[in-house]
Write a protein that binds this DNA or RNA. Structure first.
Lengths: 341, 341
DNA sequence: CTGAAAGCGCTTACAG
DNA sequence: CTGAAAGCGCTTACAG
């Protein structure tokens, strides 16, 4: 029997039961872990499944279990930034694969506009997804708040600002990573070390700046606001920030940049200003994204363990869907030494 | 009433019917287009929907309609390349948004290994998805073949090689775009114009090379294989290809590169060899991906209309799911003039 | 360990 | 135009 489109109607649990000579209940039991099933019955059912090519109908299952057996991957930042950001790819790929290993499909959702935010919130709270992997570190994200209030299992990438301890998250040790880079820059003999920060309403922006400040203070180098310029993680903002730094602190001899993409922009500004990297100004990035390999010279940077981050996000989310309490996971970073510093 | 997780059990069509004082059948009718429903009934139902916050249970609907009302976005190339490729982001975002406008969720699927290919093929042919947006232009892709044989609605990004006319696709006018770039390079007075091709088992690779050859022949410039080097769309392959070009044809004065990412690599090799761009060697890319803006100098390139490509892919796929025949859509490209040529 | 039965929330002919 | 009813393919107490 075929539908209009020519796709054959797949076998159901009923076909398998007939083929195996058991009841549909028994088939369902072997499908769901095989508790309370005799070996003979299980074998017969498994053989029948192979013979018929049976695949469970997820809609029927979901209808009765109330679970969708799928999760959402939700972007709530202004999309441009994310899609420009090479980290996004790594994270998305990692999550897709980790989920696939559990046979859980990933639904991609982009909440760029207010209308989309409303639509997606309704979609999620209606239970069309069992939980969500949230990529939005901006504080006061209304979607995150609404989802949390609705009791939707949630795990954020990066510590959500101002959400208390109620929401799970997985993050790299931002402050430690920043500390390591700035210490390294100092170990090179640099003394006028500037920084280009991320957005200060994101945990990465705040923590990396804090790490920078701590190390300078510990080294006895006084705070100097002329050495600090804000960026928004985009390449263009890094370029603009570097120009400001150059104008306000021309004696700059190193810069710690809070993302590789911004560091690309910093490199461009430095080259335009005739400063050699690393001879005149050493540049350290953050992320170890693909962008770090595309620069001239290749970028010395702090590696974020994206593979582990995505795997942990999935693990924590699945656990929470299974009834466990929220959890926070912090993963160590690593200095990757290349040529820019 | 709440489930264990604390999520409220959403209202059903039954609640809406009671609230509106009609039968469940009538509610369903207004939900599904409102044919054969009186204005009074429709108004009552719509008011009841608002009041109850009703959202359709897609699983129940799918169980009966046999449709999943979702589509897959399937990557079957070796993943590394795709995830390195900035075009991927643009395409994925465009498709997600175009689908969202139709309220159709996108499932992201990555078929990197043979095991994943098998699992995903089963998943799709089991009907868990109504159709798939296929990103794989390599010839002989086994997943594409199996899906087509199973009658799954499919639309590819780029013309699938060797699949006949049975499968829908949306593509940019690769050959015309290549022609325009090479003509432009010639108009600059360049006479030793090389090219770095894409993989020659992809339509983009083949067509862009063909455009290059045509224009040179039309200009009366004889074919010279030393001016042609193959790449695989990756940055590193562009760098290696440029080195070969420089070794075999040191008098090179322009290069048409079949992707911006490869062109990044070409720029690096050229700079290392001490050639100025564009003074000594003019470089033209292809894609107008974000990579084209990140280079020094910014890249002159051929813009692929990604927004339209993704919108058309979605349109054609949805039409096909609705019963229409396959279709091919070719979209024009555009020369974007920047500083590298 | 196993079968019969109820029911998940919807859609869709079928009568009227 | 509308209601009553069947049924989509599953899971899960409930008996036995």
């Amino acid at each position: 029997m075929h539908t209009a489109g020519g796709r054959p109607r797949p076998p159901t649990i009923h076909d398998v039961a007939r083929e195996a000579g058991v009841s549909r209940g028994t088939v369902s039991r072997v499908l769901n872990g095989g508790r309370n099933v005799s070996t003979a019955a299980r074998d017969a059912v498994e053989a029948a499944i192979l013979r018929t090519g049976y695949v469970v109908n997820r809609h029927a299952r979901s209808l009765i279990t109330g679970r969708s057996d799928s999760v959402g991957f939700l972007l709530t930042e202004p999309q441009e930034r994310f899609f420009e950001d090479p980290n996004f790819n790594v994270l998305l790929r990692g999550c897709t694969e980790a989920l696939a290993a559990h046979d859980v499909p990933l639904l991609l959702m982009i909440a760029g506009t207010e209308a989309e935010r409303r639509r997606i919130t309704r979609y999620i709270t209606a239970g069309h997804v069992d939980g969500v992997l949230l990529v939005s570190s901006h504080s006061g994200d209304p979607v995150a708040v609404r989802l949390r209030e609705a009791g939707v299992p949630l795990v954020a990438c990066g510590k959500p600002i101002g959400q208390g301890t109620k929401v799970s998250y997985v993050a790299a040790a931002d402050r430690d990573g920043a500390r390591e880079m700035v210490q390294y820059l100092l170990s090179l003999g640099r003394r006028r070390v500037g920084t280009v920060t991320g957005p200060l309403d994101t945990p990465g922006g705040v923590e990396r700046l804090a790490g920078y400040r701590e190390v300078l203070a510990e080294a006895g180098l006084g705070a100097d606001d002329r050495l600090i310029a804000n960026g928004d993680y985009s390449r263009a903002s890094g370029e603009a920030a570097a120009e400001r730094l150059l104008a306000e602190a021309p004696d700059l001899d190193a810069v710690f940049v809070a993302s590789d993409l911004m560091a690309q922009g910093v490199l461009a500004a430095l080259q335009r200003a005739g400063r050699r990297v690393p001879e005149d100004v050493a540049v350290g990035g953050f992320d170890d994204s693909p962008a770090a390999l595309a620069t001239q010279p290749p970028m010395t940077t702090i590696r974020q363990p994206w593979g582990r981050i995505s795997a942990e996000m999935v693990r924590v989310l699945l656990a929470q869907i299974g009834g466990e309490d929220p959890a926070a996971v912090i993963l160590p970073t690593e200095l990757v030494h290349r040529a820019s510093a």
